[in-house]
């Protein structure tokens, strides 16, 4: 029994984390449309709580929150451009310029995604910090 318990993966493998990332991305994307900008933080927090509680390795949760936030905010950024032909690149450039940053589209996109990623990583950190470590193998 003890051997079996030791050999069972505690947090699932890469596919499990991918599923978590995509589900999180969907939630983040949908709530962004409601103006719930703080959801990346909550998503990171949730991942942190789950990952620590399940004793998962750090190499999975971090890429997972990166994927969920980059997709979760990245898709809504470009969705109007893809569907309605709105000028996403030009808007990104304008946002960067108005923010006093170098007036390039990539700057606007990076700053926006940085806001999401920062939230998610800090949420992940908090989730892990608040959760007791699962019994070591």
């Amino acid at each position: 029994m003890a051997d079996l318990r030791l050999n069972r993966p505690r947090t699932g493998g890469g596919w499990w984390w991918l599923a978590v990332a995509l589900a999180g991305a969907l939630v983040i994307a949908l709530t962004a449309e409601l103006g719930w900008w703080f959801v990346p933080f909550l998503a990171g927090l949730a991942v942190g709580l789950v990952a620590r509680g399940r004793g998962g390795r750090r190499r999975h949760p971090v890429p997972a929150v990166l994927v969920m936030t980059l997709v979760g905010w990245g898709v809504p950024l470009y969705w109007p451009a893809l569907v309605q032909g709105q000028p996403a690149g030009a808007t990104a450039r304008v946002i960067a310029a108005l923010a006093g940053l170098p007036p390039y589209a990539v700057t606007g996109v990076l700053v926006t995604l940085l806001v999401a990623v920062l939230q998610a990583l800090v949420g992940l950190w908090l989730g892990r910090a608040l959760t007791p470590r699962a019994p070591s193998r």
Partner: peptide
């Protein structure tokens, strides 16, 4: 407040609609 300002669904990004 950059959170709301850069929210893709409700923040400054929605000004893209005016580019059409």
């Amino acid at each position: 407040p950059l959170g709301a300002a850069l929210d893709p669904g409700r923040g400054a990004w929605t000004s893209a609609a005016g580019g059409q």
